[in-house]
Simulated scan of single mutants.
Amino acid sequence: MPARRVVTGRSQQPRKRFAEELRLLRNGRGESLRELAERLGWDASTLGKMESGTNLGSPEVVEALDTHYGTPGLLLALWEVAMGDNSQFKEQYRRYMDLEAEALSLWHYGVSILPGVLQTAEYAREVLTLGGLKGPELEQQVEARTGRRKLLEGDDAPPFRALLSEAVLRTPLQDPQAWRDQLESLLEASERPGIALQVLPLRAGLYGLVSTDMMFLRLQDGTTVAYAENAHRGELIGETQAVERLQRRYDAMRDLAFSLVESRKFIMRMLEEVPCEPST
Rank of each mutant, 00 (worst) to 15 (best):
L99I: 08
G53M: 00
L78I: 00
L65N: 08
V62Q: 09
L47T: 06
S259M: 10
G9S: 13
P72H: 12
L202R: 14
V168C: 05
L114T: 04
G30L: 10
A242F: 12
R4V: 15
L22E: 07
R39E: 10
G41N: 08
A101W: 06
A44Y: 09
M83S: 12
E31V: 13
D181K: 09
E239H: 11
L200C: 09
V199G: 01
L128T: 07
T67I: 07
S45V: 13
E51H: 05
P59L: 15
V117Y: 01
G234S: 08
P136T: 11
A157G: 09
Q247S: 02
E262T: 02
L106V: 10
D175P: 08
L128N: 04
A44V: 02
V243F: 13
S58G: 14
E244C: 12
L271E: 02
T46C: 13
L40N: 00
E262H: 03
V261M: 04
A157D: 03
E122L: 06
P158Y: 05
G147M: 01
E262L: 07
A101Y: 03
L217N: 00
P72E: 12
A252D: 13
L219N: 00
A144L: 06
D181H: 11
N230D: 09
E191K: 10
A178T: 09
P193L: 08
L260C: 13
Q247D: 01
R10Y: 13
D251Q: 14
V168I: 04
G41W: 08
G208Q: 11
E20W: 01
W179H: 06
G30K: 03
R34Q: 10
Y96Q: 03
A3E: 15
A231C: 04
V225A: 08
D43N: 14
S105Y: 08
L133K: 03
V62I: 11
V142L: 02
A144P: 14
A77L: 10
T67Q: 06
G30Y: 14
G154M: 02
V210I: 11
